[in-house]
């Protein structure tokens, strides 16, 4: 075997802070305290994506949770994901309504085109629609040339804005996959915050060519698809872990200042009849605690920015 090239022992970005310039190194626990409206110390943020997994979805560099790779045409998995759009989402909507919760909903542009009634219902219920790419088969990653990615970002956002009448200022890339330019393209298209970087539990500003892009603390593990689908945990084990997350944040935020409890649920997963009770149990647990404020991503970010500006 050829010896390892010497670049493997060179470390050009070995310096204080990060090894890139996208954002600054910062320890969450050393930042100024934040408070949420009415003295709340835990912001509750539900993220409920609406997705379309095309039948032609092949192997992806970053498999989105729920990806399928059996030979075409895979009726089983295609229809199982599509169950979320026909049935599951309405079950989730009924539960969230009962608890008075409006989620942030990263929505594939394809869902707007294919299932306009679903998107209209979500809008009517006050859900915050966020960008989520074209569909789960269109990933934003370094294989794309920039012109293609520019079109993908612009098309996805334009479709959502037209269909919903909302400003659509949030974004989650399918499978959190980004090219090195994605944050720049997002701010160029009027996006204020992205959920792709999971390195923090409070919002922080990233640098882009067109001003700051805020990273919002999406949760890739307080997430039904990660824990139940990929992790093979039962709904009750899921409930147990999510409650544990909430309890820790609830106690910690009393001492250390406001925190964000993010829960991500997918209509095709939690929206199954035998699992929906998990969402009800979690929301009951949250409702039994004082000091919470339930809001959308855009609302949480606005509150956070206001306080950062004042301090």
């Amino acid at each position: 075997m050829a010896p390892l090239p010497n670049e493997h022992l060179r470390y050009p970005r070995r310096r204080h802070g990060m090894d890139h310039d996208r954002y600054d190194w910062s320890i969450m626990q050393r930042r100024p305290r934040v408070e949420w409206p009415n003295g709340a110390h835990v912001a509750v943020w539900i993220v409920a994506p609406l997705t379309w997994y095309p039948l032609t979805l092949g192997p992806q560099p970053r498999p989105p949770t729920g990806v399928f790779d059996d030979p075409w045409p895979n009726f089983r998995d295609y229809t199982h994901r599509d169950y979320g759009n026909r049935v599951g989402a309405f079950r989730v909507m009924e539960v969230l309504d009962r608890f008075g919760i409006r989620p942030t909903t990263p929505t594939n542009a394809a869902v707007c085109e294919r299932y306009p009634e679903l998107v209209q219902e979500a809008v009517r219920h006050g859900w915050e629609i966020a960008g989520h790419g074209i569909d789960m088969g269109h990933q934003h990653d370094a294989r794309l040339d920039e012109a293609t990615e520019v079109t993908m970002v612009a098309t996805a956002l334009m479709t959502l804005r037209k269909a919903t009448g909302q400003a659509v200022t949030g974004w989650l890339s399918p499978a959190n996959a980004e090219s090195l330019s994605t944050p720049d393209l997002l701010t160029a298209n009027g996006v204020h915050y992205s959920c792709d970087w999971v390195n923090d539990e409070l919002p922080y500003a990233m640098r882009t060519r067109h001003g700051p892009l805020w990273a919002m603390p999406y949760s890739h593990d307080i997430n039904d698809a990660s824990m139940i689908w990929h992790g093979h945990h039962s709904p009750l084990e899921f409930v147990d872990q999510v409650r544990s997350e909430f309890d820790w944040l609830h106690a910690e935020s009393r001492q250390q200042g406001g925190r964000i409890f993010t829960l991500c649920v997918h209509a095709w997963c939690i929206g199954q009849p035998h699992r929906i009770h998990a969402l009800e149990r979690i929301l009951e647990h949250v409702r039994n605690h004082s000091g919470t404020w339930t809001a959308t991503g855009a609302e949480i970010l606005a509150q956070y920015q206001q306080q950062v500006d004042q301090s």
Binding site: I27, M28, Q29, N176, A177, D196, N199, D200
Partner: peptide, 15 residues
């Protein structure tokens, strides 16, 4: 980049 993989590890240091 692998944004999910990288940022997940970075969480360890920030939080």
């Amino acid at each position: 980049p692998d944004v999910l993989g990288y940022s997940w590890r970075d969480y360890g240091n920030r939080v």
